[in-house]
């Protein structure tokens, strides 16, 4: 009964006419935490850029809420870029206030309250007046999430939200994602490497493969990790596991 929120049909994406991923078919249902998995450089971020309408597909179609993705008008979804992409000349608070200022009639004092609360939500209470250049990479990501949440979207696109975070912060972030999903019904499309997050929060995933230029597995990641007979799928979950533990130890 759940509605399809994002739908890709025969989707081919790439750069300057060169396909990276070909003929992708998948759909994200309302209420999903949907993961785009795959090795580094497979084109996960590229796919995400197409889903949010920043790039035009080389072939096939994308529909978000039944329409091709558009950048015109009030955004209906929030986006976290892999780099955070905060506005460098504005404080964290102003970064979050900006969309509220342009797309709502909320008055300035309330805008600031809302923005401060969103920053608190991602664990950045007290950092409202810091400039992006003055905070760590992980904090930038969290501030980016706060900005993505500014307009209370029903759909969130997150590019590697927990990469580069320490394990404690990373699991807080997983909790936040789960909570947004379960309590608010926010649909979440997430690019991630973190096996912990994958098993903790993800309900469905697609696994992309560079040589195949496409999807090699679809489904519940726990199921896939346990039952898949595809050696490439097993390989991915094993190496992601190792990488995750390695990153964990390094902190």
């Amino acid at each position: 009964m759940s509605r399809v929120v994002v739908e890709a049909r025969g989707l081919t994406v790439g750069w300057s006419g060169e396909p990276l991923l070909e003929k992708l078919d998948f759909e994200v249902a309302s209420g999903d935490v949907f993961a785009i998995l795959g090795g580094s450089g497979t084109g996960k971020s590229t796919l995400l850029r197409h889903l949010i309408g920043l790039e035009a597909p080389l072939g096939g179609t994308i529909e978000v809420n039944g329409e091709p993705p558009s950048l015109v008008g009030r955004p209906r979804h929030g986006v976290l870029f892999q780099s955070g992409a905060l506005f460098g000349s504005m404080s964290l608070l102003e970064n979050v206030v900006l969309p509220l200022r342009h797309w709502t009639d909320v008055r300035e004092p309330e805008r600031r309250e809302i923005a401060a609360a969103k920053l608190r939500l991602v664990g950045l209470g007290g950092f409202e007046h810091y400039m992006p250049a003055e905070i760590s990479g992980g904090m930038k990501k969290r501030a980016g999430i706060a900005r993505a949440l500014a307009l209370d979207p029903e759909l969130l696109f997150l590019d590697e939200p927990s990469a580069g975070l320490d394990p404690v912060t990373s699991s807080h972030l997983d909790d936040l994602i789960l909570s947004l999903n379960q309590n608010l019904g926010v649909t979440i499309v997430i690019v991630t490497h973190e096996l912990h997050s994958i098993f903790q929060v993800v309900s469905r995933c697609i696994l992309l493969h560079r040589e195949r230029r496409g999807i090699i597995a679809t489904g519940d990641p726990r199921e896939l990790a346990r039952t898949s007979t595809d050696v490439r799928v097993r390989e991915f979950f094993r190496s992601a596991d190792a990488a995750g533990r390695h990153a964990g130890n390094a902190q």
């Binding site: 608190r120 209470g125 007290g126 007046h129 250049a133 947004l180 019904g185």
Partner: peptide, 28 residues
């Protein structure tokens, strides 16, 4: 959901202390 949301936005005890801080232009 009202309860869940209010809970979500309730402040953590261990919020880091706010620092008095000058805003300035970052020019890269």
């Amino acid at each position: 959901s009202v309860h869940a949301l209010l809970g979500l936005y309730a402040p953590d005890e261990a919020a880091p202390p706010p620092h008095a801080h000058e805003l300035h232009e970052s020019f890269l």
